[in-house]
Each structure stands twice: as structure tokens, then as C-alpha cells.
Design a protein around this nucleic acid. Structure first.
Lengths: 343, 343
DNA sequence: TTGAAAGCGCTAACAT
DNA sequence: ATGTTAGCGCTTTCAA
């Protein structure tokens, strides 16, 4: 049990050294399981450390050893279901190493990304995992100079600074468009976030409209919103669009949450889904299994992206000679659910 | 623009000093906006730093100054909507200071909490915000010895180590029970997480059953699950319970997500909600506004908890003489929604 | 198996 | 307004 003296000064190695009558150096060795130490002294040191409630000072350790077991993970948001799942993939893999993820949130703002990145790099992390391929010039410069492996995640449509794990959102948009057309839908509405800042949503949209165009079809109507995704937003957008354009036969939502809101609205208003009108979202959010109809969606491989990125980083840290610039493209799976098959 | 030489060695103050022809000390002053520096040298230094792409080494800075602008925020999970909202309250307030939140996740496991806490304290943060009042002996010892302000959040039913911001979950449970009884419901089922690890859910349950007991009523049926909250889980639990105990007239869910799943199930099966059967959840998750009926719930003041905790910490860091042990109890608001009023 | 010395890159406290 | 000196608490390296 740690001593309860309200010590304002945190304990140092020296305190443990004095308490155990062993040199600081040997104490350090014991605490890091490094080097040969006799069982006897090891035990004395461990007892003393525990008894005092010693917590090593990683700042000093990191400065001396020039190594920091931190991995910077930089993502746009924690408020939707997508990035927490990526994170959990990252943590899962890093748990098998001595690396620790540290999360920074950018709110989809390039300036904030720059700030967060600068802040995190100033702690000299062992690696960086960062969402997206679009960054300010300054951010890209920092990433290049970081002196540690960098893995850009979520997206592969672009030029990575170093390594990269993700899906092609353009391809995802195309695939969804194909599927919708195959099922005979023709008057298609798109509902999603304002996209200047969400590049992945933008790319899906581009892929989507491109494929439609190949079949001579244009988006019949579209509606953009800003702010978080929520059921109510989906209802509201859907109502607005259908009042304006009642003869749509498909609604493509840029994420599952507003898709779910739309679904609830449509069912409530007595629409036949997917007969009269089909719908689909994006992300394959498991949380929403359990809706009255299973929402068509596309799994964005979020957890796997986190896992692979972490693995790449861990490998590179363990073996710095590994090649840079590895790009891993995962394949999003279409989940037809029950809202896309017109049969 | 930073030079693109693939420098493996990160730049140091000295590099900037040499590039600008100014002493390291003055460079340091410029980069921290500290002390008087002439406009001329300030500019030269800034130019040199930007030109080189210098990123200061916070490890060295922290060691030298004995100050770290990090706040450890330790929470059980990112997967439900509750903690991200707390975090966003924290970030919002800390954004006005030079403090930076660093998040650690415990998965509701005391051993993991201990590990995460140890890890974070070893970086000597300026403060700790940690969810809950229940910690292992070792964790409490670390918190006491941390040498920085500690704010325990979410809950006030217990003995804080230092400061504390939250709601009384026992009181919340009681309040919900009162409301349910007032609305004439009598045969009540409880559905929630297995609670040995979720102390707040446990306390709500305790408060809930206590108040029922005062009216001579016992929970008619109960069902516990483990794993994340999701719509499907709510459906499944609800079905199971109603098959076993068909004559329930109220279902109290330990969180909004499974409550929402239950609601969808009940409506689908043609139950009259809230006439035949009332339901309520917990948390007041905004994300779910937009369900077919507005779910009765109780706002847990998540964002405000984050804000207040961060504010307390910021004040204590700015003025270390401030009193310790401040306890702030917020009042959860009942949101009757449309699933609790029998009329 | 253990210890002593040097220094990691910065900043506090003094000079000047 | 600028420079000098002495550490911060550890780990690396070398010696015993």
C-alpha cells in the first residue's frame, strides 16, 4: 500500500533508490525488466516502489531514451459511430504491443487538424494514424518530416504521404449506384452532409453520380445539411425532399443514421419500402440492426481499417527498415438489407 | 515551406538557433511568446523555425519546466453516445485554456482502469478527469498521490478522492420510479446491462426498486444482458421478457438505445404505447429524437458534466490554492416524451 | 550483477 | 533585450 503522505512532490527514482538501498540505475533496470538483476534485489526494489506508490516519469524516460510509446490517432469526430469503431480496431491490435494510442479530434476542420497534429508531433510519437488523404500543405509537410511512420486511413483515393489503409469511396459510390439501377430504380434522390469538408462523402457522391450518368441518369433531387447525423435530421430531410419531389423511387443517404431516420419516416407515412421507394445508407452501422426493416448499406470496414493500420505501424516500429508507402485497399461489402430489393 | 530533406533526426532548438543566429534561449522565448524579444529578432527566429519546419520537443520542455499541459480524461467507453458528449463538453472548455485533453478508455474494467491511469499519470498530467467514484484501491491511491487536481465525474453517490461533478443516479432511479407510479403503472419490468461493472446503472436500479418498494411494489420481471447497447438487443430483451411475462404494463430500460429497440418492437407488434404498456430509457440521447414516439428518458447532463469538470480543473490549474474537494451535483431532468403518460 | 558519469532538449534563474 | 549556467529525472554507455 502506498504511503498516504500528501506528497506534493512526485516521487523519483532516487526515492526508490534510497528506500531500497540500491542504486538508481539498478532500480531503473528492475522497473523496466531490463538487464540482469538478482532475484533478491529485484524483489527489494519492487517492494520499495510499490510501498512508496512510485509512478515512473515517462517524460524523463522518453527524453533520455529518445523513445516514446505513443501513437497519435487523428480523426474528425467521435460523435458518429464510425470512428469509435476504427479506434477500437486500433486499440485491439496495439494492446499486443507496448504502443499506446492517443486520440486527437479535428471536427473536420483543416486548421484544427493542423493544430492537433502539431501538438501531437511535439510529443514525438512513434507513429501517426490519421484519417483521410486531404490535408493542408502545412499538415502534409509535418507528416513528411515527422520522422516516424504515418498511416493515412479510411480512404485510398489520393496520394498518401506514406502508408495508407482504406476503401475507395468513389468505388463505393459507384457500386451502390449499380445496385440501385439493377434493382430498377430510376428517380433517385441524394441526402447527405454538406461536403466541402467531408471528402469521403464527396467522393462517394462523385462515384455515385458518375455511374448514374453512364446509364444516362441524373440525380433527380438532392439535399444537403450540416451538423451531426441524427434520426430527426433524416426524417426532416426526407420529408422536405418528398414534398418537393414526390415521385422519387429511391433515396440514397450519406450515412446510416439519417438513413434510419428516413426509413422511420417513410414507414410512418405508409410508403411501401422498398416497393414504392427504396433507400440505402452508408457505413454498415451494427448499432442500427433492429430497425423495422434492415437498412441497405455498405460496410466501410471500419474496424478492420483500424486493425490493419495499427498492425502496419507496429511492424514498422518493430522493424524500421520495412518499406514505406504500403497501400492497403479493402473492399466494402454491399449489405442489401431489406430496403433495396424491389422484387 | 519546410525543407524537404528527409531528415531522420528531428530538429532541435539549436538548429533554429544556428539558422537564425540567435541564442537558443532567445529562440525558446520567441517560440513560447515569453519574455521581451525585439520585433526584429522575433521575426528572424519565426522565419527560421517555419523555414526549417521545426516542431518543438514537448518532452524536453515538460521535463525542464515541470509543467505538462495535458489533462487525462479516463472513461469506460466510446461506443455509446454518452461519453463522447462528455468529452465534447470537456474539449469545449479546455479550448479556452492551453490545456489539452488526452483520452483513455477502460472498457468498464477496473484492471484496465488501473493500467490506463498508471500510464497516464506517468506523463505527469496537469489534471485528471475520471468517470465514476468506484476504483480499485490501487487506483484510488494513485489518484490521491497524483499531485494534480482530480475530478471524478458522472456520479455523486459516493466518496470522491478530490472534486466531483455528476448526478445522483440513485435519485435518478427514484425519480423515474415515482413518475412511473404516478402514471398508474404497476407491473414493471426492468431491462438493462449486467451491473457488477456499471455502478451507475446499478445505483439507478437500486434507487428505482427502493422507491417502488415504498409503494409496496416489486419489479415484476427483470432481464440483464452484457455487451454493447444496440437496437437489436433492445428488441430481443423485450420479446423475451414479454413472452415470459405478458402482463407487464411498463418497461424501464437502463439506456436509451435498448429502449429505442424495445419501442420499435412494441409498435411493430401492435402494442399500444404508452396506453397498454409504457416505457422509458435513460440518458436523454438526442441522436434518437426522431423515433416514432419520443422515448421517455432522463437527461444525464452529460455535456454539462464535461464542461463543469473541465472548468474546475482549469481553475485549479490556474490557481493551485483553490480548495480541493468541490462537489457539484447536477439535477437530471425527466423527459416524459410520449411513452410514459398513460392518459 | 551492479554502479558512475554523461547527457537527452529544453527552460528557470541569473547574469549582462 | 539577450546570453549563460545549471539542472529537470531518467537511460545509455562504460567501467568495475
Amino acid at each position: 500500500m502506498p504511503v498516504r503522505t500528501p506528497n506534493k512532490r512526485p516521487l523519483t527514482l532516487r526515492d526508490v533508490s534510497e528506500a531500497s538501498g540500491v542504486s538508481e540505475m539498478t532500480v531503473s533496470r528492475v522497473l523496466r525488466n531490463k538487464g540482469d538483476v538478482s532475484e533478491a534485489t529485484r524483489k527489494r526494489v519492487q517492494d520499495a516502489a510499490k510501498q512508496l506508490g512510485y509512478v515512473p516519469n515517462k517524460i524523463a524516460g522518453a527524453l533520455a531514451s529518445q523513445r516514446v510509446n505513443l501513437v497519435a490517432v487523428i480523426i474528425p469526430s467521435l460523435g458518429n459511430m464510425v470512428f469509435p469503431e476504427v479506434l477500437s480496431g486500433v486499440s485491439e491490435v496495439l494492446a499486443n504491443t507496448d504502443l499506446q494510442p492517443v486520440v486527437g479530434v479535428t471536427d473536420y476542420l483543416p486548421e484544427k487538424e493542423e493544430k492537433v497534429l502539431f501538438e501531437m508531433l511535439s510529443w514525438r510519437p512513434s507513429g501517426v494514424i490519421i484519417a483521410g488523404l486531404e490535408h493542408s500543405d502545412a499538415s502534409r509537410a509535418m507528416l513528411r518530416q515527422a520522422g516516424c511512420p504515418v498511416v493515412e486511413i479510411m480512404d485510398v483515393d489520393g496520394e498518401p504521404v506514406d502508408a495508407c489503409v482504406g476503401i475507395s469511396h468513389r468505388r463505393a459510390g459507384r457500386k451502390m449506384a449499380e445496385s440501385i439501377l439493377q434493382n430498377g430504380y430510376r428517380r433517385i434522390g441524394f441526402l447527405g452532409t454538406k461536403m466541402p469538408l467531408d471528402h469521403r462523402a464527396r467522393k462517394r457522391f462523385e462515384g455515385f453520380t458518375q455511374t448514374l450518368a453512364k446509364s444516362g441518369i441524373e440525380i433527380t433531387d438532392q439535399e444537403f445539411y450540416s451538423g451531426g447525423s441524427a434520426l430527426a435530421k433524416g426524417r426532416e430531410l426526407t420529408q422536405k425532399m418528398l414534398e418537393r419531389t414526390p415521385d422519387l423511387d429511391f433515396l440514397y443517404y450519406s450515412n446510416d443514421m439519417i438513413g434510419a431516420g428516413g426509413l422511420l419516416y417513410l414507414l410512418e407515412k405508409g410508403y411501401d419500402v422498398p416497393g414504392q421507394i427504396g433507400i440505402a445508407g452508408f457505413n454498415g452501422v451494427e448499432l442500427l440492426d433492429g430497425l423495422p426493416r434492415k437498412l441497405a448499406s455498405m460496410d466501410a470496414c471500419r474496424r478492420e481499417i483500424g486493425q490493419r493500420a495499427a498492425q502496419i505501424l507496429a511492424d514498422r516500429v518493430a522493424n524500421p527498415d520495412t518499406d514505406e508507402g504500403l497501400v492497403v485497399e479493402l473492399t466494402p461489402k454491399l449489405q442489401p438489407g431489406e430496403t433495396l430489393n424491389r422484387t
